[in-house]
Amino acid sequence: MCARSSESTPQRGFTMIELIAILILVGVLAAVAMPKLDTAVSLRNDTARDEVLAALRYAGQTAQSHRRLVCADVSATAVTLRIATNRPASACDTALTGPDGSASFTSNPGSSTFTLSPSGTMYFQPDGRVTSDGAGTTASARSLAITGVGSITIGGETGLVR
């Protein structure tokens, strides 16, 4: 029987030079890729802001064009709209669906959360005002803060959403 010597057995593993080269390559790739990932997250938050902005503008335009009360409820991650089936009305009783057929107007693909100040349902009146009650007696300016993006303001007397 022939004994194998340690010299004839091939060595396995990486050399120190190969390991250093891989670490340098990973470092360069990370330096290039990380800013692009931050940009992607920022774009998702901007998308959430744009969807909320469009939903609130849609609420105001629908209230005026249909001459009906439209109610907007803002949760931490979505905006839902309802419309009154009769007029005059002080409450909304039918879901107002978005372009995709769902009652929720935001998909919130990023990590954004929504905070409405002052909180509560927004009532878009047929005359263009935004009020804090369905009867339309008190105009209410609102601010909707979106984490990572900024805020949206809603004018009480004008109903302007920007």
Results as ranks from 00 to 15, higher is better:
M1G: 00
R4V: 00
R4L: 09
Q11G: 00
Q11F: 04
G13N: 06
L19Q: 02
I22F: 00
I22S: 09
I24P: 12
I24D: 04
L25C: 10
V26D: 04
V28I: 15
V28R: 10
V28W: 07
A30F: 01
A31S: 07
L37V: 11
L37K: 05
D38E: 12
T39D: 10
S42T: 08
A48P: 04
L53T: 14
L53N: 11
S65L: 08
H66E: 15
R67C: 07
R68G: 12
V70S: 08
V70Q: 13
V74Q: 10
A76G: 06
T77N: 14
A78Y: 05
V79G: 06
N86S: 14
N86P: 01
S90K: 10
A91I: 09
C92G: 03
D93R: 01
A95S: 12
L96N: 05
G101K: 13
F105D: 00
P109D: 00
S112D: 11
T115Q: 12
S117N: 13
P118I: 13
S119A: 15
M122I: 07
M122T: 11
Y123P: 11
F124I: 10
S132W: 02
T137V: 05
T138M: 05
S140N: 13
L144R: 00
I146L: 15
I146C: 08
T147K: 05
V149Q: 02
V149F: 10
V161F: 02
